[in-house]
Design a protein around this nucleic acid. Sequence first.
DNA 1: CTCGTATGGATAGTATAGCTTGCCACTATA
DNA 2: TATAGTGGCAAGCTATACTATCCATACGAG
Lengths: 208, 208
Amino acid sequence: MRMAELSRESGVAVPTIKYYQREGLLPPGELTSPNQARYTATHVRRLRLVRALLEIGGLSVAGVREVLAAIDDPTTSTHDILGLAQHGLPMAKLEVSDDDRAWAMERIETAAAERGWQPHPESPVIEAIVGVLCAFRQVGHEWALDALDLYAEAADLVADADVTAVARLGRTEAIVEGAVVGTVLGDALLAALRRLAHAEASRKLFQA
Amino acid sequence: MRMAELSRESGVAVPTIKYYQREGLLPPGELTSPNQARYTATHVRRLRLVRALLEIGGLSVAGVREVLAAIDDPTTSTHDILGLAQHGLPMAKLEVSDDDRAWAMERIETAAAERGWQPHPESPVIEAIVGVLCAFRQVGHEWALDALDLYAEAADLVADADVTAVARLGRTEAIVEGAVVGTVLGDALLAALRRLAHAEASRKLFQA
DNA sequence: CTCGTATGGATAGTATAGCTTGCCACTATA
DNA sequence: TATAGTGGCAAGCTATACTATCCATACGAG
C-alpha cells in the first residue's frame, strides 16, 4: 500500500498524513527506495486511532503523541494505564484557594468513603475533581453537588465494566491501546448519552 | 467596585477582562464618567462562570458567548435548555460511511429501547453518539460497546438527578444557568470520577 | 523508452484562537 | 499636583493544526 491508498483508506489528506509522520504520530513506511515506501494495515489502523483521539477525544497533537508513546512502550504495564490516563489526557485545572481546596477534599473523601474508594490524595485526578467542585461552588451552583454520590455511583458502574472488559483482552499489547481507547472515547460516549438522557428525563418530567 | 478589584476578586488579569468585554462575554460596567465604570457582584459571578466554562468545560470563547446569550435571553424555556446543550456545547463529529451509520443507529435504537428512550433520530446528540460508536469500530475496539447498555444506565442515573435538581431551582432565571452549569461541569465531573473509579476497579481486580 | 503522475522529504506559509501590549486622554486618589 | 488606575481601541504575539510549494526521484501506462 502506498501513500495515496493510505489516504483513501483512512480519509486523511496526504499532506496531513505527512504532517502526522513529522510529528511522530505515524511511523514511517518501509522504504523500498529513497523516495518510495510501503504502508500496511497497521498504518491505516494507527491513522484511524490518531483521528479518533483528535476528533472524538479532543486531544491535542502533543497529547496524542504522548498517548501513542505509552501504547508503543513495551514496559507500560496494565497498572500504568491509569497513570497514563491521568497524564497525557486532557484534564482541566483551575487555580483554587486553600479554603476551597479543603472544602472540596472533604466532600471527595466523604463520597469516596461511601463507595469504599481509597484514592491517593495527591493524584492529578483528585486535583481535577477538586477543580470541578470548586468551579461549581464559585459559580454559585453548589447545589449540583448534592448528586455527587450518585455521580460516583455512575462512574463506578461504567468503570467496573471498562476494567473487566479490558482485562478480558488478554495479555497482548492491545490491552494498553484498549484502555486508552476506552478511556478517551468512553468519556465522549458517556457525555453524549448523558445529553440524551437529559432530554428523556426532561420529557418525562415536564411534558407528561 | 472598579476594574482592579474585579480582577483581584475573580483572579482574571485586567487585559483579559477587557478582552472578554470586547468579545461580549462580560457586560460593560455602569459608566460614572467617560472613562470610569462601576462593577458589581454580578460581574464577578459572570466572570467566574466564563472562566469555568472555558477552563473546566473546555468551551471556546465563541461557545461561551452563545451559551451566555441563551442564559440571558428571557425567552429561553426550560425545554430549550436541552437544545442549548446540543448547540453551543462542544460535540465532536466524525464523518462516517452509510454502512457504519446504519450499524450505529441500530445499536443506539436497541439501547434506547432497553431504557424506554424515544430519541429523535436526527438530533445532533444522536449524531455525536453515531460518531463515537463508529470511532470505536474504526479503531478496532468494538468490544467496548458491549457495555453500551451499562453506559446508558449510568447516563440515566445522573441525568435523572440533574433534571430533578434543576427543576427544584424554581422558576427563576437561574434555572437556565443551572442547567448549563450542570451540563458542562457535570461532564467534567463524571469524566474525572470515572478515572478515579478506573483506578479503584483496577486495584481491586489486579492487586487484590 | 518516455512522459505524466506519485512519492518522500524538507521548508515555508496559512488560519484561527486566545490572549497581551501599547497607547491615549482622562480620572480618582494621596 | 504627582501618581497610579481606567475605558476604549488597535496592533501584536504565541501556539496549534494544518497546507502549500519544491525537488529529485520513481513508478507505470503506452
